[in-house]
């Protein structure tokens, strides 16, 4: 937390080296997370770049007492991804089915758990990714997703149960009971 605070102070004082280190340390993970939301590698990279650019242009809103800097970054990224979806919904003719193709191509390289994971709702994918891959705490998830901690708990349970149901239906029951 203290490191986050110090790093944030340097970012706010326009320290490009500090921001570069912040970018290097988090860009790949943020991009992987965003790919789960937008389902498109190129779009995920664009959203990731927009997220860092937004923070660099106007660094405000981070409160160390509410969570980590990485949690704050992922929260901004999630909002930018939601905007990406809204724009995409407004101009579907411009997008064509490129996103779908890339998504299908992406899932083809997934393992079985990846197939099951890809069939979850976006919100559940986002939540499970942040918890299982990024290891965000309940409090950080609440801050990122702008929901109460109690809701984080219940939604995580619902997401796991849904993933478990899909996973079982694809023949992994026996494997899981070995």
């Amino acid at each position: 937390m203290a490191d986050d605070h110090e790093l944030w102070e340097r970012i706010c004082s326009r320290d490009a080296n500090a921001f570069e280190a912040f970018y290097r340390g988090n860009a790949a993970r943020l991009c992987a997370y965003l790919r789960q939301i937008v389902g498109n590698t190129q779009a995920a990279e664009d959203v990731m770049q927009e997220t860092f650019t937004q923070i660099w242009r106007s660094p405000n809103g981070f409160r160390p007492e509410l969570g980590s800097l990485r949690g704050y970054l992922f929260g901004i990224g999630r909002k930018r991804a939601a905007e990406w979806w809204r724009k995409r919904a407004r101009a579907p003719e411009e997008q064509g089915d490129k996103g779908v193709e890339e998504s299908a191509e992406g899932t083809a390289s997934f393992s079985t758990i990846g197939d099951a994971f890809a069939r979850l709702a976006e919100e559940q994918r986002s939540l499970l990714w942040l918890r299982e891959i990024e290891g965000q705490s309940y409090a950080e998830l609440a801050e990122i997703l702008q929901i109460p901690v109690g809701t984080v708990k219940s939604r995580l349970f619902a997401a796991r149960e849904e993933l478990r149901r899909i996973w079982h239906s694809s023949g992994n029951v026996a494997r899981s009971k070995k």
Partner: peptide, 11 residues
């Protein structure tokens, strides 16, 4: 990791 576009943005 791609080059950060944030460097192009003016504060």
């Amino acid at each position: 990791i791609p080059e950060g576009r944030w460097r192009l943005a003016e504060p």
